[in-house]
Simulated scan of single mutants.
Amino acid sequence: MAEFIALIPAAGSGSRMGEDIPKQYRPLVGKPMIYHALRTLCSVTRISTVCVVLAPDDTEWVRHDWDEFTGKIRIFNCGGATRAESVTNGLKELRAANYAQDRDWILVHDAARPGLSTTLVEQLLDQLADDEVGGLLAVPLADTLKHMNDTGRVMRTESRKRLWQAQTPQMFRTKLLLEALEKAPTGITDDASAVEALGFSPKLVVGNAYNFKVTYPQDLKLAELILRERATTQN
């Protein structure tokens, strides 16, 4: 049976947040932001291992207590200059350590998506476990899209029909994902794009708006509201 393995690339600096510490360590409901993604992924029983890829010079990780995840997480200080490079390096480390085989499923998740729920993860596993390619969580676009010209004015309105906003986790077999990333064109922004470049069509699995990516300081308040509401519901 193929294993399900989660991988969180967490080697970025998060410069758009305007903080002195990397974004993944920014406090959120009393914990580092990455904690919330870790907690969700580690609580899914079908996921055997959660791999965190840190920058080689990361000094912040050891400042926090991760004992509750002992036995399920693996830390690799092999992060690269880009997200794709960090995921690639993490995959190679997983294979070298014999944690991941060619047919095992890899769920790549952004550390800056703290609103991920176990329900969404289980839904992803259920819909993709027997899929030939793999896929990703995503949501249909609801907003009107404007194409801007060089002067900052609207050039045209784009149709949003059949357009989806990609989320994570994005889930592919180890061998396919590693090959896709190693051959990926410069500038890809997610794992699905790399797989698409090989000629495959990943499956879209409906996510939800709570699983958004924290990018700017104002996003933190919304993320905190979501996490506090979830904690209240669970208690």
Rank of each mutant, 00 (worst) to 15 (best):
V133T: 08
D102V: 15
W105Y: 04
N77Q: 14
R113S: 11
K92W: 04
V108K: 03
G115A: 07
F76H: 10
E93V: 06
Q101M: 13
L128Q: 11
D104R: 09
Q101P: 00
V108L: 09
E122K: 11
L124Q: 03
L125Y: 05
K72R: 15
V133E: 14
R113D: 11
L128D: 01
K92M: 13
G134H: 09
V108N: 05
E122G: 06
R83I: 08
C78R: 10
G80V: 06
T119L: 10
G71Q: 12
V133M: 12
E132P: 09
V87Y: 03
D104L: 04
K72G: 06
D104M: 11
T118G: 03
S117P: 08
D131A: 13
Q123W: 03
F76A: 07
D130T: 15
I75E: 01
L125E: 06
D130E: 15
E132C: 11
S86R: 04
L91H: 07
L120M: 14
W105H: 04
I73R: 08
V121R: 01
I73N: 01
A111P: 02
D131V: 07
K72H: 08
L116M: 07
V87H: 02
G134S: 13
H109S: 13
L124P: 00
Q123S: 13
L107A: 08
V121T: 11
G80T: 06
R95Q: 12
R74N: 09
